[in-house]
């Protein structure tokens, strides 16, 4: 069923189109010409060994100013977002689930998400979400992630366990309903129960209007969130693209054979 959706969606324009993207941090080039197209309804996975540039790619799409884009373009729904700030990208519907969510003592999860939702609405010329509607949505989405109500009044990520932090990221994603969700190493630090809850949360948020980019080191997460397309990132370049079978192949063979293949090409 999912394949049919994908085929249909290919006829429409890309949601995200990255062309020849080069990015560096402190003068060192990390991304060396990335090309990537993601369509509505699709789940893409980016895999690669440590240091290949996976998290950099996520940060650059989200607009992290620590990274300098030296060449290429990032198009989101046909418009170039390369110059936009992270909040402006969020307003367009891009969401990044952090590998290491930041702890912010002094502001509760609830107040944080209210601020976030209302700022996004403001950017779209909408009024604040009515309090009862907000409350209902918070209840519904926190239930989806099996979050305790006490959790919502705690300070944001402050003293949260690894699993709680990741669940909280997906809770925010559920609240914000982004068009493109980038999940950066969402599986790291999760036990099997948390992994199941988080993955189910992500899967239930999928529609044929939104897209997901899963960044992971391991195949394990892809058993739960099944990708349509798998890309392998090596030394700042996508060296191979395939379907979910590629992920399984990587799990068995590692990355070395691809390294040899890509150097052979040069």
């Amino acid at each position: 069923m999912h394949q049919n959706q994908t085929k249909y969606n290919y006829k429409r324009s890309n949601m995200l189109k990255i062309k020849n993207l080069h990015a560096s941090v402190e003068g060192e080039e990390i991304l060396k010409g990335i090309n990537l197209e993601i369509n509505p309804g699709e789940v893409h996975a980016i895999m690669g060994p440590n240091g290949s540039g996976k998290s950099t790619l996520a940060s650059v799409i989200a607009g992290n100013e620590d990274f300098e884009v030296t060449d290429g373009d990032i198009l989101f729904e046909k418009s170039n977002i390369s110059e936009l700030s992270p909040d402006e990208r969020a307003h367009k519907g891009i969401f990044l689930s952090f590998q290491y969510p930041v702890e912010i003592p002094g502001v509760s999860v609830t107040n944080f998400i209210k601020t976030s939702i209302n700022q996004v609405r403001k950017s779209r010329g909408q009024e604040d979400m009515p309090a009862n509607e907000m409350l209902k949505k918070i209840r519904e989405k926190s239930a989806l992630l099996e979050m305790d109500r006490k959790f919502l009044s705690r300070s944001l990520n402050d003293g949260f366990s690894g699993g709680e932090k990741k669940r909280n990221e997906i809770f925010q994603m559920a609240m914000l309903e982004p068009k493109l969700a980038i999940l950066d190493e969402t599986d790291s630090g999760l036990d099997i129960d948390a992994l199941r809850i988080v993955s189910e949360g992500v899967n239930r948020l999928r529609t044929n209007e939104n897209a997901t980019l899963v960044i992971t080191h391991y195949q394990r997460l892809l058993d739960y969130i099944v990708p349509d397309v798998v890309h392998v990132l090596l030394d700042g370049k996508i060296v191979k693209t395939g379907d979910k079978e590629l992920a399984k192949e990587l799990e068995e063979r590692g990355y070395d054979w691809l390294k040899e293949e890509s150097t052979a090409k040069v």
């Binding site: 992270p86 969020a90 990044l96 939702i117 914000l176």
Partner: peptide, 13 residues
Amino acid sequence: EALYYLQTRGIPY
């Protein structure tokens, strides 16, 4: 890092 995190949630600088 915290500023960036809040910005990715749509909260302007």
